[in-house]
């Protein structure tokens, strides 16, 4: 029916992504951790590995213990969990890289012939900088945020070029990414255009988080900065206005006035009648005396 479904059978993963390896050796601990993550995130569609009790969807999610999934390289499984496609949701915002590798470890525990290749730690040692910091500057005229990434290299702060960077605004349930992911230039700088109509707090402040995307290489590097770039949040409480559904104090004026006047009119009439009866009574008494 949709284009997504017909192509779902051939899920191409690029060569370098396929060859990606886990940064740690899988052990009982990672398998247990992976099982827990699998049971929360994957079981509702893929079922219990080895039991074939997956959901009958199109495309079929498949049992992770079967050849269809086990024939993938570690990197491919990682990529597919990370990116998602069609019915398979992306887990990039749900699971940290290490957690995805733990799920891979759990899936691999159903494959007796599997032998793990662990990524060499060399890559990490190649990083020249012992410490990384990100500075975010505001350029109000161009509606731009400029991030400068610098690393500490032998007591000197030098720019970190060619690394991916994202900027996101903090929201109640998550981070709202601003602009796209950018690569830093040779000065270690990258510019992000922010939308004019982004919502801020009651003063227009927006809390921004700038983060390096290559977590394998740098670990989790992020900086929080707050700028006054948002629209003021001057929204009134939804129950502020007078309305028929609101509490007694906030009832519509016409309702309060008409209600009170009807009550007064009814009681007034009753008292008027009683008063008249009293008058008749006394008038009758006077007659008989005379």
């Amino acid at each position: 029916m949709s284009g997504l479904k017909s192509t779902a059978q051939e899920w191409e993963v690029s060569e370098d992504k396929q060859q990606r390896l886990a940064p740690f050796a899988f052990n009982d601990q990672s398998v247990t951790a992976g099982e827990e993550l699998y049971n929360t995130n994957c079981i509702s569609c893929h079922g219990n590995p080895g039991q074939g009790n997956y959901q009958q969807l199109d495309p079929i999610p498949g049992d992770p213990a079967t050849e269809k999934i086990q024939s993938n390289s570690d990197g491919s499984i990682y990529y597919k969990i990370y990116e998602g496609k069609g019915l398979m949701p992306s887990f990039r915002n749900i699971l940290a890289p290490d957690e995805i590798w733990e799920v891979v470890a759990y899936i691999r525990s159903f494959n007796d012939s599997y032998k793990q290749l662990v990524a060499e730690v060399q890559k990490l040692e190649n990083v020249r900088w012992s410490e990384i910091k990100i500075l975010l500057a505001l350029n109000r005229e161009n509606k731009e945020l400029t991030a400068t990434v610098k690393g500490l290299e032998e007591d000197k702060w030098t720019p970190v070029p060619n690394t991916g960077l994202i900027v996101a605004a903090e929201r109640y349930f998550g981070q709202l990414q601003i602009d796209e992911e950018k690569l830093t230039d040779e000065k270690g700088m990258a510019s992000f255009t922010y939308p004019e109509n982004i919502k801020g707090d009651t003063l227009g402040h927006v809390k921004l988080q700038s983060m390096l995307t290559d977590q394998d290489l740098f670990g989790r590097v992020s900086t929080d900065t707050t700028f006054r770039i948002g629209m003021l949040n001057d929204a009134q409480p939804l129950n502020k206005e007078r309305a028929l559904w609101n509490s007694n104090k906030k009832a519509p004026l016409w309702l309060i006035i008409s209600y009170i006047s009807v009550v007064l009119a009814v009681w007034g009439f009753i008292f008027y009648v009683l008063f008249q009866l009293r008058k008749i009574y006394f008038a009758g008494k006077k007659e008989t005396v005379n």
């Binding site: 509702s44 569609c45 998602g84 019915l87 949701p89 992306s90 887990f91 990039r92 915002n93 749900i94 996101a168 605004a169 929201r171 109640y172 349930f173 998550g174 981070q175 709202l176 990414q177 109509n197 982004i198 919502k199 949040n233 929204a235």
Partner: peptide, 26 residues
């Protein structure tokens, strides 16, 4: 939800977050 059906958020922030992918969109 395992299928990413629901988004939930704050209209004042003009942002909603998907319950499955945890992706936040405008």
């Amino acid at each position: 939800c395992p299928n990413g059906v629901f988004y939930f958020g704050d209209e004042n922030e003009d942002a909603v977050t998907n319950g499955t992918t945890k992706e936040t969109v405008r």
